[in-house]
């Protein structure tokens, strides 16, 4: 349902993304894992049409996002929970979204319930929200249209352990209901807990992808992650240099 097809992005002399290809299928939670600055956010911005790839293409539900007529009804997106007008209430943020998408106002209350923001909290301005509350608000916004595809950039940032537990169950249930979820994170343990497939990225390149088990190779995901991110400079061949790292490619 999400497809990156040889996506590269070059800013001047810096290659932010280098031939990124992977897919996310319906009913799965895919973790997009990489250190800070690896190109995760750039890739997600390209996916939802906020940036253009230098070459290659990214599609959602078979189309480039920006070419869908009403994309936000089918694709829920949270790119930066902090990017809100501080003077707007949480409820107002959701109301604007619901109005834009032509949804009944009752939907605002529904998504607030889903993410566990209380009536009272929803009437406060976002400027006074903690990062965790902003993340919940952002996830509520992404869920407004009842999407088939969810794209979340670092959604667990600022969530407390309870919040992470809650999000894990939320995403699991959405995936079980057929949703395709792509979430990025630089924190291995978060991703390990939530995702059933993982795409590892470093310096703009996909280093490995597969299920958590495949990537662990019997010694733990962390080992693989550290090894791949440490060696990526010296590697001359493709991802196949590490046996098994390519096992999940195309499986979605």
């Amino acid at each position: 349902m999400i497809e990156f097809n040889h996506v590269s992005k070059i800013y001047g002399t810096v290659t932010a993304l280098d031939d990124v290809s992977f897919t996310v299928g319906a009913g799965s939670v895919t973790g997009f894992l990489g250190p800070n600055g690896a190109g995760k956010s750039t890739a997600l911005r390209i996916l939802v049409g906020l940036a253009r790839p230098s070459s290659g293409s990214a599609t959602v539900l078979g189309l480039p996002y920006a070419e869908m007529a009403g994309p936000a009804l089918r694709v829920g997106t949270l790119l930066d929970a902090g990017a809100r007008h501080p003077g707007r209430t949480g409820r107002e943020v959701l109301t604007l979204g619901a109005m834009t998408l032509g949804l009944p106002r009752t939907r605002v209350g529904e998504v607030l319930d889903l993410v566990g923001l209380t009536e009272r909290e929803s009437r406060r301005t976002v400027g006074g929200y903690s990062l965790g509350m902003r993340q919940r608000l952002g996830i509520a916004h992404a869920l407004l249209g009842g999407p088939e595809v969810l794209v979340l950039d670092e959604p667990a940032n600022g969530l407390d352990p309870q919040g992470i537990h809650w999000m894990r169950r939320l995403l699991r249930d959405l995936a079980d209901a057929g949703c395709a979820v792509l979430l990025s994170s630089h924190l291995l343990h978060e991703v390990e807990q939530v995702a059933d497939r993982i795409v590892m990225i470093g310096r703009g390149r996909v280093l490995a992808q597969g299920t958590v088990d495949e990537l662990s190779r019997g010694r733990g995901l962390e080992e693989t992650f550290l090894e791949l991110t440490a060696h990526e400079d010296r590697r001359s061949t493709g991802a196949g240099a590490f046996p098994g790292t390519d096992a999940g490619r195309g499986a979605a």
Binding site: L103, P104, E110, L114, G146, P147, R169, L174, D176, A177
Partner: peptide, 12 residues
Amino acid sequence: IAGAAPSPLTKD
């Protein structure tokens, strides 16, 4: 949540 996930109908 699964029950609430399907797309809500738009007003029009």
